[in-house]
Amino acid sequence: MADKKTLTFALMDAPYENARTTTALRLIDAAVRRGYNVNVFAYEGAVAVASPTQKPHPNTVHGRDVAEENHPNPKDWVAAVIAEAERRGAKVDWVQCGLCVDERGVTELLPGTRRGTPGDFWTFAEQSDNTLVIPTR
């Protein structure tokens, strides 16, 4: 196996619902900061993590505008890890399950991500040094 490690992560959770999304992105971020190549197969609700149509919102209850609220959108974190990988000469291959995006109507692709199938996950696993599946509960 080459010196540059390649890890695959399968994500299944929708954003804003539990800590697994945060932990997954922490792992991916740490991996790209090592210069590892990272494959991500976003399955089921996880296809919404990289949905480019996410928008920050104000908090009218507390009287904060969009800037003050500084609401995080996970698509920005995905874009950040893709950019960080490029800076370090590594690659993030982020695949959105095609059936899953069609079912959920989140078919728009964030730059650096692509549409794929569960077959891509199989290929990722075959070609990676290791694979971690982060399942829904």
């Binding site: 792992l27 090592r34 290791n130």
Partner: peptide, 14 residues
Amino acid sequence: IDIVLDHLAAGRKA
């Protein structure tokens, strides 16, 4: 959390 990456890179079954 880097310890997870260490073990994944070393080939541990996760």
